[in-house]
């Protein structure tokens, strides 16, 4: 697969909870150690991302700064293999911003009991209890009674309550060459745009995405 990214200028990326470049040595953790790990806390992320708001870094006959008819969004194109009889999939004129608040990442034990965010067993009032006093929730476990038999750790991604889009847009198309500026002499550039998407405003969400390994199929 060949991938080409052109004319990209991400203006701002903030991940407030991410530390600066951390240097650490990675060592594998075996299953036994993993099973002893109890999650403490997690990550809370908010972020803002803006792409080519005032045009990309390339200024030439094809690409411009959004004040004229030239393309000012980023261009992402890829094709399968190096064979010349294949064309390119293209995401073109990709620009705009998006921001989100309150994306959380943590691990969590899902079983038939009730726990707080630190993994501590709690009663219905949220007070810590010992294992023996855990509240078995049965069908009220949020999974219709699937929790007790599941009994595993999952990675929980808490979806941000809202994602704001600021004139976020792109066009999906197919092209004969990676970019209109990279056409060999004697060949013509062709691109078919299928549709464009434009989002401006807020998307409200709730819920968690739980990710876990499944058994061999």
């Amino acid at each position: 697969m060949k991938i080409k990214i052109k004319n990209v200028l991400p203006a701002l990326v903030i991940f407030s909870a991410l530390a600066t470049n951390v240097q650490a040595e990675l060592a594998p953790i075996d299953d036994a150690e993993l099973s002893n790990a109890v999650a403490q806390g997690g990550l809370y992320l908010s972020g803002e991302f803006s792409l080519n708001e005032e045009g990309g870094p390339i200024q030439d006959a094809t690409y411009g700064d959004c004040t004229d008819d030239k393309r000012c969004g980023a261009r992402f194109s890829y094709k399968l293999g190096g064979n010349d009889s294949n064309g390119w999939y293209v995401i073109d004129d990709w620009k705009g911003g998006l921001s989100f608040e309150g994306l959380t990442i943590r691990t969590r034990k899902v079983d038939g009991n009730q726990r707080d965010v630190t993994g501590q067993l709690v009663d219905n009032s949220g007070n810590p209890v010992s294992d023996a006093g855990a509240i078995a929730l049965g069908v009220n476990d949020g999974f219709g009674g699937d929790g007790a038999s599941f009994n595993k750790e999952v990675l929980e991604i808490g979806l941000p309550s809202s994602v704001k889009f600021d004139e976020y847009q792109y066009t999906l198309g197919y092209a004969s060459h990676a970019s209109p500026t990279e056409v060999p002499t004697g060949e013509t550039f062709q691109q078919t745009n299928i549709y464009g998407v434009f989002i401006d405003g807020q998307v409200n969400m709730s819920g968690n995405m739980l990710i876990f390994p499944t058994a061999d199929k």
Binding site: G142, V197, I199, Q202, V203, N204, M205, N208, L210
Partner: peptide, 22 residues
Amino acid sequence: LEDFSLHAGAETDNASLFKITG
């Protein structure tokens, strides 16, 4: 997806817009 919902482009506040162009 647990306890999930999604709502985009509520016309009532007239602020959200998702459109397909081309």
